[in-house]
Design a binder for these strands. Structure first.
Length: 494
RNA sequence: GGCGAUGUAGCCAAAUGGCUAAGGCAGAGGUCUGCAAAACCUUUAUUUGCCGGUUCGAGUCCGGCCAUCGCCUCCA
C-alpha cells in the first residue's frame, strides 16, 4: 500500500515515494525562541510528531530535523530587556520548550539544530549564492537577488511583479529590489555577532533552514513542513536560496498544517488571544489538548475554546475507563488465548487504521476506526453469552491493537488509573469542586441507602449530578467521577 | 487589490465522481439497575452557503455570487 500526501507545491494529493526506499527525511520549521512556546507551536509539534510516529510504525527509518532559530531581532530585544546575553536567553527558552513539549507527549526530533551552532554552514551557503550571482553584499548586509531566481513565487503562487506593486513592501535603500531579502545582517553595536567575509554580523531569517536542512538531510529530501503561515515568505525564500545555490529541487513534498484560532481568529499576541503551552496545560489535561488537535485533519484550523474540550474529555474518560476494565480482565485472565469464540468476528482495527492514515494522515478517520475497537471491547464485556474466560483473550488482543494505534497518535499510553485520576483533577478544578464535601454527601447517601431511604439517596445523587458529579453504585462500593462541562458554542464574536 | 483556504445536522468533524453522506458531542427512546451512573442497542442531514454548468452519476469537477479566515510586515 502506498501512502498519499497532500503536496502544497503541486496542490495535489500525491503518492509518497521516498528519495531512498525505506527511509524518510523530514524537516519541520521549529521555533524562533524569543518567548515561551504557545499552543500554535504545540499543534505544529504534535502533528509532525504524529507523522514521524506513523512512518516509523510503517517501517521507515526516519530522520526528522526540527530547528531552533536562536538568533534574531526579537531574541536580541527580549534578551536585552532581561539583561541577558542573547544566546543564554534563547537557550533558556529552548529548555522551557522541551519541557512543555514533553508534557504534551512530543518527543524531541532526531536532530534539533540551532542556528548559532551552524554559522559556518550558513556563511558557506551565502558565499555560494554570491558566487553564483544570486546574492550581493550591501554595506555589511547580504541580500538575496530575487530577480535572479525566475521561479520565485512557485510555492505560494505569487507573482513578483504584483508583490512589487504592493504598497506594503518596505522601501530599503540598501536593496536593489524591494523583494530582496536579507541573508546576512550587519551587527549593530553590542549585538551578538560572528565574523564573516562581509564583516561582523548574523544570519537573516530564512537562510538557516536552507543551510541546516542541507547539512542533515542533503540537498534533496522528502518532506518539508511547517505552519500555513510560513508558506510566504519563509518557505518561498528557502526554496529560492536552496534551489539557486544548488540547481536542485530541495524538498520533494511540502506539507503545511493549519493554525490555532481563538474566537475564530488566528491566535496572536497583538490580538490578546494568546495561550502559552503552560497556560493551556494548566487549563486542560495534556491528553485532551492532544486529542483536540488530532481530531481534526492536520491541514484544518482549530478553534481553541472551552467547548472544544468537552468532546475531548468525554472521549478520554471513555477510552481510559475502557482500558481500566481491560486491565482488570488482564489481571484475572493473564494467559487468555486470543483465539476468538466461533461466532465472534474480530474487527481488524490495525489495517483500517493504516488505510486511513495512508490517506494524508487522516487522524480523524483513524480515531473513528479506534472507536470501533472500543465499541467492540465494551460490547463483548457487557455481553452475557460467551463467558469471560472464553472471550478475555480476544478482548485483550483488540485492546493491545487499539493501544498501538493510539500510541502513534500519542494518546492513552499511561496506566488508566493514573490517567483517570489526573483527568479528574482537571475536571475537579475546572468545576471548583471540593472532594471532601462530595465524600461527605456520598457518605450520607450510603447511609440513606442502607436504610432503604431511596428518596433521600436519590435526592443527594440528583444534587451531585447538578454539580457535574456522576455517582456509580458498583459491587465494590459507590464511586464518583466528575463529568466535563456541557458544551457551549464557541463565541466567535469576541 | 493580489494569492490561498474554508463553508457538510444543535455543536465538532470525515468523505481526493459512483453502493442507503463516517465518527464524536449534545438530544430522544430502550437494555441493565431499587432508582441511577457507566457500558451497550436504536434514533437524529431526502441533503452538503447560494445560483448555474459538465457528467449516466457531483459534497467532491468548472463558472459566478455570498460569507468567514489566513498570507502579502514578525509569525507554527
Amino acid at each position: 500500500m502506498t501512502a498519499y500526501v497532500y503536496n502544497t507545491m503541486t496542490k495535489k494529493r500525491e503518492p509518497f515515494e521516498p528519495k531512498e526506499p525505506g527511509k524518510l527525511s523530514m524537516y519541520a520549521c521549529g521555533l524562533t525562541v524569543y518567548d515561551k512556546s504557545h499552543i500554535g507551536h504545540a499543534m505544529q509539534a504534535i502533528i509532525y510528531d504524529m507523522i514521524r510516529n506513523y512512518f516509523e510504525f510503517r517501517g521507515y527509518e526516519v530522520t526528522y530535523v526540527r530547528n531552533y532559530t536562536d538568533v534574531d531581532d526579537k531574541i536580541i530585544e527580549r534578551a536585552a530587556l532581561e539583561n541577558k546575553p542573547a544566546l543564554v536567553y534563547s537557550q533558556e527558552m529552548i529548555d522551557l520548550s522541551l519541557k512543555d513539549m514533553a508534557l504534551l507527549g512530543v518527543k524531541p526530533a532526531t536532530i534539533e539544530p540551532k542556528v548559532s551552532e551552524h554559522i559556518p554552514e550558513i556563511i558557506e551557503l551565502i558565499q555560494k549564492l554570491i558566487d553564483k550571482g544570486h546574492a550581493y553584499e550591501s554595506q555589511g548586509d547580504v541580500y538575496f537577488e530575487v530577480r535572479s531566481f525566475p521561479k520565485y513565487g512557485c510555492l505560494s503562487n505569487r507573482d513578483p511583479e504584483e508583490l512589487r506593486s504592493g504598497s506594503r513592501i518596505e522601501i530599503n535603500q540598501q536593496k536593489n529590489d524591494p523583494l530582496d531579502f536579507a541573508l546576512w545582517k550587519r551587527a549593530k553595536e553590542g549585538e551578538v555577532s560572528w565574523t564573516s567575509p562581509w564583516g561582523e554580523g548574523r544570519p537573516g531569517w530564512h537562510i538557516e533552514c536552507s543551510a541546516m536542512a542541507e547539512k542533515y538531510l542533503g540537498r534533496e529530501f522528502d518532506i518539508h513542513g511547517g505552519g500555513r503561515d510560513l508558506i510566504f515568505p519563509h518557505h518561498e525564500n528557502e526554496i529560492a536560496q536552496s534551489c539557486a545555490a544548488h540547481d536542485s529541487c530541495y524538498a520533494r513534498y511540502w506539507i503545511h498544517n493549519g493554525l490555532i484560532l481563538v474566537d475564530g481568529q488566528k491566535m496572536g499576541k497583538s490580538k490578546g488571544n494568546f495561550y502559552t503551552i503552560q497556560d493551556a496545560v494548566k487549563a486542560f489535561h495534556p491528553e485532551a489538548i492532544r486529542y483536540t488537535i488530532l481530531k481534526s485533519h492536520y491541514t484544518a484550523n482549530i478553534d481553541f475554546c472551552d467547548s472544544a474540550f468537552h468532546d475531548a474529555y468525554s472521549r478520554m474518560l471513555y477510552f481510559y475507563n475502557t482500558f481500566k476494565r481491560v486491565e482488570e480482565i488482564r489481571e484475572q485472565f493473564p494467559d487468555a488465548e486470543a483465539t476468538p469464540p466461533a461466532n465472534i468476528t474480530v474487527p481488524n482495527i490495525k489495517d483500517a487504521f493504516i488505510e486511513v492514515m495512508d490517506d494524508d494522515f487522516n487522524t480523524v478517520a483513524a480515531i473513528r476506526e479506534i472507536n470501533a475497537g472500543f465499541k467492540f471491547i465494551n460490547d463483548l464485556v457487557a455481553a452475557k453469552k460467551p463467558k469471560m474466560k472464553q472471550k478475555a483473550g480476544v478482548i485483550l488482543a483488540v485492546a493491545d491493537e487499539i493501544k498501538t494505534c493510539l500510541g502513534i497518535l500519542g494518546l492513552c499510553q499511561n496506566p488508566s488509573k493514573q490517567a483517570l485520576a489526573e483527568i479528574q483533577e482537571y475536571l475537579i478544578r475546572a468545576r471548583n469542586i471540593d472532594p471532601a464535601e462530595v465524600e461527605a454527601r456520598l457518605q450520607e447517601r450510603v447511609a440513606a441507602r442502607e436504610n432503604k431511604e431511596w428518596q433521600k439517596a436519590d435526592d443527594i445523587r440528583e444534587s451531585l449530578i447538578a454539580d457535574g458529579i456522576a455517582v456509580m453504585d458498583t459491587p465494590q462500593g459507590t464511586e464518583w467521577q466528575v463529568l466535563p462541562h456541557k458544551p457551549k458554542a464557541c463565541d466567535k464574536e469576541a
